[in-house]
Design a protein around this nucleic acid. Structure first.
Lengths: 221, 221
DNA sequence: TATGCTATGTGACTTGATCACATACGCCTA
DNA sequence: TAGGCGTATGTGATCAAGTCACATAGCATA
């Protein structure tokens, strides 16, 4: 019980009604998942509403031709909108979620979820807010995929993915999967960025040298 | 009051608890909107949850460059997932909804919506199901835009948009906006379909001649 | 050092988007 | 009925991005 004070990790859940907090604590499980675990995917109906305590989950779509596109990531303190959608709407997933790091998460069973939704306005607000943020993300992705240039999108993504020292440990193939593009295309763009002195590449990693130049490109429509 | 028995139009709302039905009837308004009305759009926070009694609403995204893509349509008996998302999550719209025909709709105020959600499991299920269907649609769009060929997507859309006699009254420009593509591209594809004898075109309209051939193309990934 | 796996590079080609125009159609008016 | 106008459609050139086939390079391990 003592290690179950996890609601403190979620701003929207701190001021929950005490009996709801108690309900969540007594019926939910805290689970640990190793990096690489497929948490959900097409054809798998989710059994519970998932809140991330630690680690990140990547949500992506895989096409028949084997191409991939990353839709969004769930970080600690967030919940999975898709899980929510499916839990609520009883539809199967069209996308899959993979643990990018070791993950610690809270799994709230559907029955508990239903009860908390019906009894707590604060819980509803928490769930719906998370949901709408992710729907908004989906709109942005549609707009970008349909209308934005690949160099602009790559610049944006490099800035997002870089760590505090401007380093990105991904292969060209993985970057292509982030954007739903092709390895060769990404390789050529990176080559061009390198030619301009904006970054340096080596096998499996990239170092940003002029993030401001990338930011300027990323700011284009 | 008598003409407000609109819940009959929504399968998911027929078996609602009587007091919820009463709540909906007494606080919601039935509104009529002429074709072309912009029902919601970026920067407009929705004031109510909308259920369509008659007509169709087109939900689309417009890019900075002026290009458009149609996301989905809402038909009689359906609700607007986006409205829902925004109503629940308090986010602004990223897309706009336009009445394609004259529209008759029920507008449920936020307070009523909140109350019905909290008190009725059946109402929750109705809302969440509609929501998840539309989220699923968004996933399909992302997959298609990112990975499908334009001829396949055009064939699919022509079949969707054709009336019972295989007729489509849209310009090439409008078809391009359906798919987030360009007029010239659509024109060339239509020309190719016509060359194969699958359809005939004339100014502002298209007649499908061999829908089965289109269906076969549309079935490709 | 040899071997093998994975990552990256490259050229040729196809598809789709963009741009700048040219034409054609339908409708209204003189 | 002809002329004129606005919108819809056609067309070639060019560019951007994805695809395909294959070459090369980096790194680990035997």
């Amino acid at each position: 019980m003592i290690d179950q004070q996890w609601t403190a990790n979620f701003p929207g859940l701190r001021d929950l009604e005490p009996e709801i907090t108690h309900l969540l604590f007594t019926t939910s499980k805290v689970v640990d998942l190793p990096a690489g675990t497929r948490i959900f995917g097409p054809g798998q109906s989710p059994e519970s509403y998932i809140l991330l305590l630690d680690g990140t989950v990547r949500v992506q779509q895989v096409s028949e031709g084997g191409r991939e596109i990353v839709l969004y990531r769930i970080a600690a303190g967030q919940s999975c909108a898709l899980t929510t959608a499916c839990l609520m709407g009883y539809e199967d997933y069209q996308a899959e979620g993979v643990a990018e790091t070791d993950v610690k998460a809270v799994a709230i069973p559907r029955a508990t979820f239903d009860e908390a939704i019906s009894r707590s306005a604060a819980f509803r607000k928490f769930v719906f807010t998370a949901f709408s943020v992710n729907v908004t993300t989906l709109f942005k992705i549609i707009e970008e995929v349909a209308f934005s240039r690949i160099d602009v999108r790559l610049a944006q993504r490099l800035l997002q993915l870089a760590d505090s020292r401007g380093r990105i440990e991904l292969t060209h193939q993985q970057l292509a999967a982030e954007l739903g593009s092709a390895r060769e295309v990404i390789g050529r763009q990176l080559h061009e960025f390198q030619r301009r002195g904006w970054l340096t590449t080596s096998r499996g990693s990239i170092e940003l040298e002029k993030p401001d130049a990338l930011r300027q490109l990323a700011a284009m429509y």
